[in-house]
Design a protein around this nucleic acid. Structure first.
Length: 711
DNA sequence: TGGGAGTGCTTTTTT
DNA sequence: AGCACTCCCA
């Protein structure tokens, strides 16, 4: 036990050994956040203050949940299976499966991922004959999810204009459709679980009394509903222990509310706020740069990282002529580093947007440096995998219309759009699922659909008593999917992925062992929806790691390159156009990027860059100027100095348009608000500029008439 | 039914 | 530029 606490610093020790109170742990980057969480759990259990049964630990990603479980298991001899450690969605799913009747759900309810949800909304709009120009499916999804995340049902949604009234109606129709089909989207998992607990007093009391200690990781990423869910569970006197870093809040765009931290501090943890400010990751110069950047943000709880590791190397800054030149520089440096003995896996190249990876990949590939890119399509999102899962979903729940439509004619069975329209009309009339309505269809088309339904029935019967991996294999084969891909010329890789799906089922059975409510198949389908596959980088891969800054959160590398540090790109122009909050989120993103580096940090920008098929002239990011010059080592290559002997200031080569404006400049317009100049044509009085106003869109404006003020 | 041409969009992303 | 999506024709 003393071992457990031996290597903690004073604030860490204080946090770990807090009595059962509410507490907010402000954990800076690299300050041992996970360590504090896991050690606290281990300490609580090993000192007998709580049984593992009485703990609830919540994370955002499956990876974090797994890591936490593994680390706790290494600290105390308990069976990690008995611990309630998981993601918000995973835990809500668990509660809803256990109490599906009280929650008004079929035991085998299926989970829609974002793509499934979009498909479901598209289908709904089509069935209702809604104009999808005026009501774009994506926007409707966003509207629905936004309301659910605020805890608002269609019946309570406010609407002050016709457009929104219609959207609320569509939200209500969507709710009805999901209920009819027995499916639940991601936001619904949380909202349904919240409602279950708040309406069902005995159940709520049961869980409130059971969970004495509730611990939350990455608290800055919680949305309103998640926070409400936590408060509800903790309302019976449990201790709520929230760990987070407001400076690393980079997910406001998808509903995270940093304000939850301030609110939590005010309402719960006023006297128990602990700051973890000692950083064990980065050298001093890197931290100094990070601190200098983040201190420009106004909305902060306040925190200053320090280290006793020494200043380390200066931060290397490079201004390239073009994106290609930048890529060459990065790869030259990487080759040199590898030659000197740095492992390729210890080098990360970060960028603001995934499109930037292309040039870098090309250069890495042509110079034979091993690399791995994160951020592509994930395993369970591949079309062939989704098709196979759709067959499995129909076996588990025939009312799942999304799954039905996905594979009713794949592989092709001569069931055309016309037939499906008739089928949907029939289903709509009888308010039943497509599967049930299939019997009512007559004629040749009816036969084809009938054959499909018969196929599903046969598959269900044949797989009834098979172990899960064999179920998957059988379905892939007998559905015709395997045959279809065998004849397709690009099908080899898809076949391999289908084999991989069988393997995934096998290892799922091995890992999970215990079969949840509703049987192995339902558990596996849930797993597939909730855990779309490896997206974040793993340890120990001997390849240079390429990823967006967002994807790098939580990771660390010896050497980090932050590329594309240009106005309009990083900070991104859309964010800048949103105003101060947008810019502050970009700055937090920059802070996250910088704090990924242990020993060496490179910052680079390019003067020209291909973007959307056009060459753009770029101004270096304002974030570069926020770093004290004495921390920087400017690496300009020979041609640069030769052509500009007086050491050019950043951005000197970007042509000025007129009136001190240049591309990348943030401007304000009386009607459109804030925007960023992205292109120009003409000179002097004739000059026109293209400005991205974010929400107000992209506009061409004549400088002579438009009143633009440089900001 | 499937492919080819035309159109429009394009930040970040977990569950 | 590159990709996803739609539409139309053979």
């Amino acid at each position: 036990m003393s071992d457990l606490l031996a290597r903690l610093n004073p604030p860490q020790l204080q946090a770990v050994t807090l009595p059962p109170v509410h507490a907010l742990i402000l954990a800076g980057a690299g300050s041992g956040k996970t360590r504090v969480l896991t050690t606290r759990i281990a300490w609580l259990v090993s000192t007998g203050q709580v049984s593992p049964h009485g703990l609830l630990a919540v994370t955002f990603t499956n990876k974090a949940a797994k890591e936490m479980t593994a680390r706790i298991a290494a600290l105390v001899p308990i069976n990690p299976r008995g611990l309630w450690i998981g993601t918000f969605h995973g835990l809500c799913n668990r509660l809803l499966r256990a109490h599906h009747r009280d929650a008004g759900l079929p035991q085998t309810f299926q989970i829609l991922d974002s793509a499934d949800q979009l498909a479901a909304v598209k289908r709904l709009l089509k069935n209702l004959g809604v104009d999808d120009e005026k009501y774009p499916p994506r926007e409707i999804c966003h509207f629905i999810n936004g309301h659910k995340e605020q805890g608002i049902r269609a019946a309570q949604a406010e609407a002050y204009d016709a457009w929104t009234r219609r959207r609320v109606e569509l939200y209500a129709e969507y709710e009805a459709q999901c209920n009819r089909e027995g499916v639940v989207d991601f936001a619904e998992l949380l909202l349904r679980c919240y409602e279950l607990l708040s309406r069902n007093e005995p159940l709520r009391r049961h869980y409130q009394e059971r969970f004495r200690y509730i611990l939350v990781d990455e608290f800055q990423d919680t949305n309103r509903l998640q926070y409400a869910w936590l408060k509800l569970l903790a309302a019976g006197g449990a201790s709520l222990f929230a760990v987070g870093d407001d400076d690393q809040s980079i997910y406001a765009f998808r509903g995270a509310e940093v304000g939850n931290m301030r609110e939590f501090e005010r309402d719960y943890a006023r006297s128990n706020v602990i700051r973890l400010e000692q950083n064990y990751r980065s050298h001093g110069n890197i931290l100094a740069a990070a601190n200098a950047i983040i201190k420009n943000n106004r909305e902060r709880l306040g925190k200053n990282l320090w280290t006793d590791a020494g200043a380390g190397e200066p931060i290397r800054a490079f201004e390239a002529w073009s994106d290609l030149d930048e890529a060459r520089f990065v790869i030259d440096e990487i080759r040199e580093l590898i030659r000197e003995g740095t492992g390729a896996g210890q080098v990360a190249v970060l960028y603001r947007s995934n499109a930037q990876s292309r040039v870098l990949e090309h250069e890495l590939f042509s110079r034979g440096v091993p690399y791995r890119v994160y951020g592509g399509l994930r395993f369970f999102e591949r079309q062939e995998v989704k098709h196979a899962l759709a067959y499995l979903r129909l076996i588990a729940n025939p009312d799942d219309d999304t799954a039905f439509l996905r594979v009713v004619n794949f592989p092709t069975r001569g069931i055309g759009a016309r037939t499906l329209e008739n089928l949907q009309a029939a289903a709509h009339q009888t308010r039943s699922s497509l599967y049930n309505a299939a019997a009512s269809l007559s004629g040749k088309a009816g036969q084809a659909v009938g054959a499909f339904v018969a196929l599903i029935e046969i598959l269900r019967r044949e797989t009834e008593s098979l172990p899960l991996p064999e179920v998957v294999e059988h379905v892939i084969e007998k559905s015709g999917l395997a045959q279809h891909y065998r004849t397709e010329k690009e099908g080899q890789e898809r076949l391999e992925n289908l084999d991989e799906l069988i393997n995934a089922a096998a290892s799922f059975v091995d890992d999970e062992g215990a079969v949840g409510e509703g049987g192995a198949l339902v558990s596996f389908l849930t797993h597939a929806s909730l855990e779309a596959g490896e997206h974040q980088a793993g340890e120990g891969q001997e390849a240079v790691q390429l990823m967006s800054v967002h994807a790098a959160k939580g990771l660390e590398f010896d050497v980090v390159f932050i590329t594309g540090l240009e106005q309009g790109l990083f900070p991104h122009e859309n964010a800048v156009a949103e105003g101060r909050d947008g810019l502050e989120e970009e700055r937090r993103l920059m802070y996250v990027a910088v704090t990924r580096a242990r020993q060496r940090l490179y910052l680079s920008c390019a003067q020209t860059r291909m973007l959307h098929g056009q060459t753009r002239y770029c101004v270096p990011s304002g974030f570069l100027e926020e770093i004290p010059a004495e921390l920087l080592l400017k690496l300009n290559r020979a041609p640069a100095t030769a052509m500009a002997p007086t050491a050019p200031a950043y951005g000197a080569s970007v042509p000025a348009i007129a009136g001190g404006l240049r591309i990348g400049q943030t401007v304000e317009h009386s009607k459109f608000g804030l925007g960023v100049i992205v292109a120009s044509e003409g000179r002097g009085a004739d000059a026109r500029v293209q400005v991205n106003f974010g929400g107000a869109g992209m506009k061409w404006l004549a400088l002579e008439y438009a009143k633009l003020t440089a900001v």
